[in-house]
Design a protein around this nucleic acid. Structure first.
Length: 291
DNA sequence: ATGCAGGCGCGCA
DNA sequence: TGCGCGCCTGCA
């Protein structure tokens, strides 16, 4: 892979295992919006970035080499060899062979811990467009105005301190629905206990999940998502309805409970569980497997 | 129209 | 430990 700066962009040449659609639509993030030219625009660490792939070039627009080195390299997990991960998974069975071929450009983003905590609380029993809307409303109301890009305004995801200014009613007014009280008590607890959830990265996966489950609105699936996407715990396996369907279709009995499906997967995929989940999820949802 | 969608907390056995 | 149920909200 070659990296160079050109104008207001950083260009990645001959980067392998990087496909914007796969990365931004495999269920891990909510703030990357598809543009008319099939590029994606998002907000990370107070920066607006546009990502576009053309042939063997990935354009990171509205940025520079300094931010690439300080932010985007880690955010897009460019240090990790996804070819090696896919190779291991592909050799496990025919289903993963197909799933890794289908979602060949998936990468697991290194996202902000607190943003993941709140975002996945909102995700429970909810649909992606509505999750995106609620997060946008919260960001516009309680986040910081960053600037404009292509005529649209962008805001940072609010900090716990910012969000703590909102009442339960005001949080609901951002279209969070019945999850308003979960968000309120979660933010309140973080402020009162002066907690920094990004420190959960230092805990073992088991301890990390145990701590996350103490938050109101965080159950098994949501906790796994936060640990995986916000704390880089790759030996987790979030089981949502799509993953349940694809697991039942290919691996386990129809009547196996969710916790048992999870146990089966983590024992099978071990440290690659999170990656396997992403490939299987994207494969199942895009193809409508098990529906 | 009424059931349901990318779950969770709760009450109850 | 394992169930069944209600819940914001928009869409089929």
């Amino acid at each position: 892979m070659k990296v160079y700066e050109k104008g207001n962009s950083v260009i990645l040449e001959d980067i392998e295992d990087f496909e914007p659609k796969h990365i931004f639509e495999c269920g891990q993030c909510f703030r990357w919006i598809k543009e008319e030219d099939d590029s994606y625009t998002g907000v990370v660490e107070g920066k607006i970035l546009n990502v576009k792939k053309e042939g063997n070039l990935v354009y990171l627009n509205n940025t520079n080499l300094e931010d690439f080195n300080n932010i985007w390299y880690d955010y897009f997990d460019l240090k990790t060899d996804y070819k090696a991960i896919k190779e291991k998974l592909r050799n496990m069975d025919e289903h993963l062979e197909k799933a890794t071929e289908f979602g060949y450009g998936i990468r697991i983003l290194k996202q902000d811990s607190f943003e993941m905590l709140i975002s996945f609380i909102i995700s429970s029993n909810n649909r992606i467009p509505m999750i995106q809307r609620a997060i946008n409303n919260l960001s516009r109301t309680y986040g910081e105005f960053i600037g404009e890009y292509n005529g649209k305004e962008y805001y940072s995801f609010p900090t716990a301190k910012d969000l703590n200014k909102a009442t339960t009613e005001e949080i609901r007014a951002c279209q969070t629905g019945f999850r308003d009280k979960y968000i309120k008590t979660t933010v309140e607890r973080i402020i009162n206990e002066n907690d920094d959830v990004s420190n959960y990265r230092n805990l073992s996966t088991e301890e990390c999940l145990k701590e996350l489950l103490k938050f109101n609105g965080v159950g098994a699936k949501v906790g796994d998502c936060i640990a995986l996407f916000g704390m880089q715990k790759f030996d987790t396996f979030p089981v949502d309805v799509w993953v349940k369907r694809v697991m039942q279709e290919f691996y386990v009995d129809e009547d196996l409970s969710l916790p048992k499906i999870r146990k089966y997967a983590v024992e099978k995929f071990e440290d690659l569980s999170g990656y396997a989940q992403q490939y299987l999820f994207y494969y199942a949802r895009e193809l409508g497997i098990g529906k």
